[in-house]
Amino acid sequence: MREGATLAGSHGAGPWRKSSYSGNDGGQCCEVALLSHAVMVRDSKWLCGSVVTFSPDVWRRAVASLFPGALSGSRDRV
Rank of each mutant, 00 (worst) to 15 (best):
D76M: 12
S10I: 00
A8C: 07
P68S: 04
D57Q: 12
G49H: 07
N24K: 04
S36I: 02
L7R: 12
Q28F: 03
F67S: 13
S44I: 00
V39W: 03
P15R: 08
V63Y: 06
L47I: 12
L66Q: 13
G23K: 01
S74Q: 14
H37Y: 09
K18R: 15
P68E: 03
P15L: 03
L34Y: 00
T6M: 04
V58L: 09
R2Q: 06
P56F: 07
V39E: 07
V52T: 14
R77H: 13
Q28V: 10
W16H: 02
A62I: 08
S44H: 05
W46G: 01
K18A: 11
E31D: 12
R77E: 14
D43T: 08
R42S: 07
R2P: 10
G26V: 02
L71V: 12
G73H: 14
M1Q: 04
M40W: 11
S44V: 00
C29N: 06
D57C: 03
S20E: 02
V63W: 07
S72H: 15
K45E: 10
H37G: 11
A13F: 08
C48L: 09
H11K: 06
G23N: 12
A8I: 12
A64W: 09
S10E: 08
V41R: 09
A33F: 09
D25N: 14
L35Y: 07
S50I: 00
V39P: 03
H11A: 11
R2L: 09
N24D: 08
D43L: 08
R60W: 05
V51R: 03
F67D: 10
Y21G: 07
E3C: 01
V41E: 10
S36F: 01
G73S: 15
F67T: 13
G23D: 04
S22A: 15
V32T: 05
A64L: 06
K18M: 08
M1L: 07
N24Q: 11
